[in-house]
């Protein structure tokens, strides 16, 4: 009997491994963050758009990571690209969060009519493949990154709304909602403070992290593929940097292609790991 009882719970994720994942994720985000800070304060080593070094020059004291095939400083371009991506990325978060919260709350608490309307809106957005909708917007907006990221945010709204809906559904019958009501706490405060802030903030934050990973993926993919859809030269993007260095690899110039590739991968990994850590933190508490 004791044996069977001991079986009843599988060992869950251990504490140390959870923090390890979180820590690795944060470390992975450091290079990109450095770039954003450096660009914001004007600390870039060189102008990312100027042809100052020799073509495909190797690392030196002047150019820490060397130059690309047009002789521009690689490190400056790398950091400038991170900075250039940040405002549109933040816009994607804002759009996803506001649309997701409005539609999610309306869906689960808006009564029959508004609930049906917003659930329909969410399903419509969910049934269109995200990337293709982004392609459409990119084609129309003539590769304006602001619009592209707004579209990414909008296509991600159903994910946020789903997180909200599931936490509302779970708590709808909880007695404390009724207790707050009888205290005279307003419905708005109950929904936003007691339910969303109290019980859904980790999940929403984790969703936002995976949104950032996805947004970065979309931006670099579009910029890499070309076709006047993503970020255009000479504005730096990790994607178009790889595209430019694509053929240099066969002549032995590995650095200009590999470094942006590493940056993309570790930044995406960082966002995913942080998001995962947040979710596990939440699972353990719940």
């Amino acid at each position: 009997m004791i044996g069977s009882l001991r079986w009843s719970r599988f060992p869950s994720v251990t504490k140390s491994s959870r923090y390890l994942g979180m820590a690795i994720g944060i470390i992975c985000l450091v290079p990109a963050t450095l770039g954003v800070v450096a660009a914001a304060f004007g600390w870039l080593p060189h102008d990312p758009l100027q042809f100052i070094g020799e073509s495909n020059g190797g690392p030196s004291l002047q150019h820490f990571l060397g130059c690309d095939s047009l002789g521009r400083d690689l490190l400056s371009r790398l950091w400038a690209a991170a900075a250039y991506f940040t405002p549109p990325g933040a816009l994607a978060m804002v759009v996803a969060l506001s649309l997701g919260v409005v539609l999610g709350v309306a869906e689960s608490l808006g009564g029959r009519f508004w609930g049906a309307i917003s659930s329909w809106c969410l399903q419509v957005m969910d049934s269109l493949p995200k990337f293709v909708l982004v392609l459409l917007v990119a084609a129309i907006a003539r590769s304006n990154l602001i619009w592209i990221m707004a579209a990414v945010g909008a296509t991600f709204a159903p994910q946020i709304a789903a997180a909200i809906r599931s936490s509302v559904e779970r708590l709808r019958a909880a007695a404390f909602i009724e207790a707050e009501k009888s205290l005279g706490v307003s419905m708005t405060r109950i929904v936003f403070f007691h339910i969303l802030w109290g019980h859904a903030r980790h999940v929403i934050l984790a969703q936002l992290m995976s949104l950032m990973a996805y947004a970065l993926l979309v931006e670099t993919s579009l910029s890499y593929l070309g076709g006047e859809l993503g970020v255009q030269e000479p504005t730096p993007s990790w994607g178009n940097m790889i595209a430019l260095a694509r053929d240099g690899v066969f002549t032995g110039n590995l650095l200009p292609a590999i470094i942006p590739a590493i940056m993309i991968s570790i930044t995406i990994l960082g966002f995913s790991l942080v998001g995962q850590g947040l979710l596990q933190l939440w699972e353990e508490r719940a």
Binding site: A174, A175, F176, E178, A179, E180, H194, W197, G198, H199
Partner: peptide, 12 residues
């Protein structure tokens, strides 16, 4: 309320 276990919000 009847059930004190769920009539307090566990998050606060």
């Amino acid at each position: 309320f009847q059930n004190p276990f769920s009539s307090l919000n566990p998050a606060f």
